[in-house]
Design a protein around this nucleic acid. Structure first.
Lengths: 195, 195
DNA sequence: ACCTGAACACCGTTCAAGT
DNA sequence: ACCTGAACACCGTTCAAGT
C-alpha cells in the first residue's frame, strides 16, 4: 500500500493532498504531519522532497500559477473574435478561478507565503501576458488608447484581483448580481482605457 | 512592574504588542505565548481578555479598520475643494495605509482571519462610505455619470485594494514610479466613471 | 477579578537508524 | 534512495489553584 510512494511520485501526492487540506480547512490548517497521516506515510517522509513546510507551499503556489495562466489563456481562446467578449471572458476567468480553486488562490496570494509577487513566478508572468496581450489587441483595433501596455494591464489586473479578494458578491459563476457587477466593472475599465 | 496590568489595561497592551509582533515578523508569528512573555505576563493571562487567539486577531482587525477609516476621512478632508484632488487623495491614503500599517492591513484582509468581509465591520463600512460619498460628490458636480453609487464605489475600492495587495511598485509614498502609476490608475477610473 | 504553574494534545524539524 | 521512531523546542488551550 505504501509501496506506491516508492516510485518517485510522493512529491506529487504531497502537493495534491496539501491542496485538498487547504481547500477543506484553509492554509493555516496545512500541516506536514496531517498530510503524512492522510496519505499513509511517516511524518518525516515529506522532508525527502521538501526541505521545509514553506517549500511545499511554494510548490503548491507554482502549480496554482500554472493552472491560473492556463485558465486565462483558455478563456481568451474560447471567447471568439469579438474584443469586448474576449476582454470580459478573461476577467470572468480570473474571478472563476478564485472561486473554483480557492486553495490555490489562497496559497498564491496569501500572507502565509514569504516569497510573494506574481512577477517572480514564470506562470505568473504568463498570466500577466494574457492581460497585456489583450491590451495590445485593444490598441491595435482602436478600442484602447495609446499608452504603456504594462501600466494598462496592471490596472486591469488590480481591478480583477480586488474584486476577487474582496468578494462583494458570493457567487460570480452563476447568472445574477455577481455577473452584473462584473460586467459593470468591465465596462468602466473599457471606457477608462478607451480612446 | 506587572502591577500596571492590574488596572484593566492589559487588553489594550495585548492588542498593541500583537500589532508590533505582526509588524516585525508577520501574522503567522503572532503567538499568545510570546506576547505574554514580551509584556511580562503569564501565558494564560491573555485568556482573561480573549477567549481564544482568533478573538485577539479580531480585536486587532477592528482597531485596524477604525484607523483605516480615520485615514481615509482625514485625507479627504485635508484635500481641499477640488474634486480630482479629493479623489486622488483618498486613493493615495488607501495605499499609504497599506504601507504604513502593514500589520493592521495583514490582519484586516489576511487569510488567517475567519470572519472576513469589510461590510461586517462598522469601521469598514465607514471607510466604504468615504468612497461612496466621493462618488456622490462627483455625480453632483457632473464629473461622474449617473448610476448606483454602491457599484461605482465598489469598483474604486476594488482597484485600490488590488493595487495595494499586488504591490507592483515597492513604494507609493515617495515621489516616483509608484505615484505615477497611482495617478495613471486614478485617471482611468475617473474617465471610466465619467459622463 | 485577575493572575499563575502544570498539563494535554498538537506543531515543525532533526537525527540516528533501518531497507 | 527512500522511509521510520524517538526526541527537542515550540504552539493553543484548559484547569486547579493562588492573591
Amino acid at each position: 500500500v505504501a509501496e506506491k510512494y516508492h516510485h518517485g511520485n510522493l512529491r506529487a501526492v504531497l502537493i495534491e493532498e496539501g491542496v485538498k487540506l487547504v481547500e477543506e480547512r484553509g492554509v493555516n490548517a496545512l500541516t506536514l504531519r496531517e498530510i503524512g497521516d492522510r496519505i499513509g506515510v511517516s511524518r518525516t517522509a515529506p522532508y525527502r522532497h521538501f526541505g521545509e513546510k514553506a517549500d511545499l507551499l511554494a510548490a503548491i503556489r507554482e502549480a496554482g500559477f500554472s493552472a491560473f495562466a492556463d485558465s486565462l489563456e483558455a478563456a481568451r481562446d474560447a471567447a471568439g473574435a469579438d474584443f469586448t467578449a474576449r476582454f470580459e471572458a478573461v476577467g470572468l476567468a480570473y474571478l472563476r478561478f478564485s472561486e473554483e480553486h480557492r486553495a490555490y488562490f489562497e496559497v498564491m496570494f496569501g500572507a502565509g507565503c514569504v516569497r510573494n509577487g506574481t512577477a517572480e513566478d514564470p506562470a505568473g508572468r504568463r498570466a500577466f501576458e494574457v492581460l497585456k496581450g489583450l491590451i495590445r489587441e485593444g490598441q491595435a483595433m482602436g478600442a484602447f488608447r495609446a499608452g504603456d501596455p504594462n501600466m494598462m494591464a496592471r490596472v486591469v489586473w488590480a481591478m480583477s484581483h480586488g474584486i476577487a479578494v474582496l468578494r462583494f458578491e458570493t457567487d460570480y459563476s452563476a447568472e445574477g448580481a455577481g455577473t452584473r457587477f462584473l460586467q459593470f466593472a468591465a465596462r468602466i475599465l473599457r471606457e477608462g482605457l478607451g480612446v
